[in-house]
Amino acid sequence: MRVTTEPDQPVLSIQDLRVSFHSSSGRIHALNGVSFDLKHNEVLALLGESGSGKSVTAAAVMGLIDQPPGSIDSGRILLNGRDLLRIAPGERRQLCGEEVALIFQDALAALNPVFPVGWQIAEVFRVHGRLSRSDAQREAVRLLSAVGIPAAEQRAKEFPHQFSGGMRQRVMIAMAMALKPRIVIADEPTTALDVTVQAQIIETLKALRVETAASFILITHDLGVVAEMADRVVVMYGGRVVEVADVYTLFSDPQHPYTRGLLAAQPRLDSEGSELVPIPGSPPSPAALPSGCAFRPRCPLAQEVCAASVPPLARTANTSLSACHFPGTPT
């Protein structure tokens, strides 16, 4: 049962999400109050380095966090106005399965090695009781050819190991799009691929976005992929959102010193190699976050206040949101 929402209403709203994990070395705070909205038919990029919490955010939305060792300490995840964290597991599975789809980074690990790919896509329809066995198979073939797999009828009978990395990723995309989800979460969908294949997958995702009117959450560490595909960007660091901006503003006028540092550290294909400006140090371990602003130890602007209090995500002069006590200050 689908609920229609107004175009300006967020499709998905995450509010003050806190997730931690138990480990032998103590409690790991993976998400420390993450909030953002996903709008209708937009591509929202979650940009961050390892340990920033971007994948945990996706796992929390999909209900893939094992508890224990994980624990969702607080927050709300609103889908169509319903809080996914407070509905019965069965209901959540039904809702998430139909409305939210996930594309994993490692397609070989995500596909079942002992069943043909067509069978695995058709399984989606069988589980959700939509189609008869033969119709499901036909639909699987149609989906495979829609994501650009040649000779789809033939390839549907083949097994995952018979596909190349790019083709497997297309199978994953076909499976994700099967139930016409309203939200697609793509977790590093092109990271393991060669650039020429990455370009094919990016084109495929762009085309799907136009055809299906779905909203995408694109999880990536690659500024290039963000610049190619995203409408808005959520920059994460140390389990918090540090900047939210539309993609043009983010690249032309970044507000948070971390975002600025990231852009300066990136080698550019379109310009000659002057000296790169790295960010000193390395990303913090979620097991030992610094007090106050997590970026403080690496930040050229850091003052006493940064250690004392976590800067809230606040509107800046150029309408971005930035979690910094000194947003927009040149570094």
Partner: peptide
């Protein structure tokens, strides 16, 4: 094929796929 880390002009960028 390399994604360019600059969104300006991406609609008109031609790409050899």
């Amino acid at each position: 094929a390399v994604p360019v880390a600059n969104p300006v002009g991406r609609e008109n960028r031609s790409r050899i796929v």
